[in-house]
C-alpha cells in the first residue's frame, strides 16, 4: 500500500470501535461495519487530511465507497484534479 492508502486505512481504523488487524485494498466497507454516519465522519477526515472535497450523499449508493481500494482511487483522482487545477491557475 502506498502513502495515500496507508493514510486512508489509518483514518478508517481511527473511526472504528474495534478495527481489525489488517485492512486490505479489497476489503469491503460493509464488512467493516461502517454505517452512513461513520462514513460521513470518515469522509470528513479524508477531506481534511488531503485538502479535497468528496461528493458523497448518504442517500445514494456510491460505487466509490464499495471497497477500501475504490476510496483510495477516488481520493487519488481528486488529489490529481486539485494538482491539475493548481497548475492551471
Amino acid at each position: 500500500m502506498d502513502d495515500v492508502a496507508n493514510k486512508i486505512v489509518s483514518i478508517l481504523k481511527k473511526n472504528m470501535k474495534e478495527p481489525p488487524e489488517t485492512i486490505a485494498l479489497d476489503t469491503k466497507l460493509s464488512d467493516l461495519e461502517i454505517e452512513s454516519l461513520d462514513l460521513a465522519v470518515i469522509v470528513f477526515d479524508i477531506e481534511d487530511t488531503f485538502g479535497i472535497q468528496i461528493p458523497y450523499n448518504a442517500n445514494e449508493e456510491m460505487q466509490d465507497f464499495a471497497t477500501v481500494g475504490s476510496v483510495v482511487e477516488r481520493v487519488k483522482s481528486l488529489i490529481g484534479d486539485k494538482g491539475a487545477a493548481g497548475a492551471a491557475a
Binding site: N57, A58, N59
Partner: peptide, 20 residues
C-alpha cells in the same frame, strides 16, 4: 451538509428519485 443527508435538488418523499 457535513452529515451528507441533504438533497442538492429537491425534497421528494417516498419517491424513487429521492436523494435526501
Amino acid at each position: 451538509q457535513a452529515m451528507r443527508v441533504l438533497s442538492p435538488e429537491g425534497c421528494w418523499p417516498f419517491s424513487k428519485h429521492r436523494n435526501g
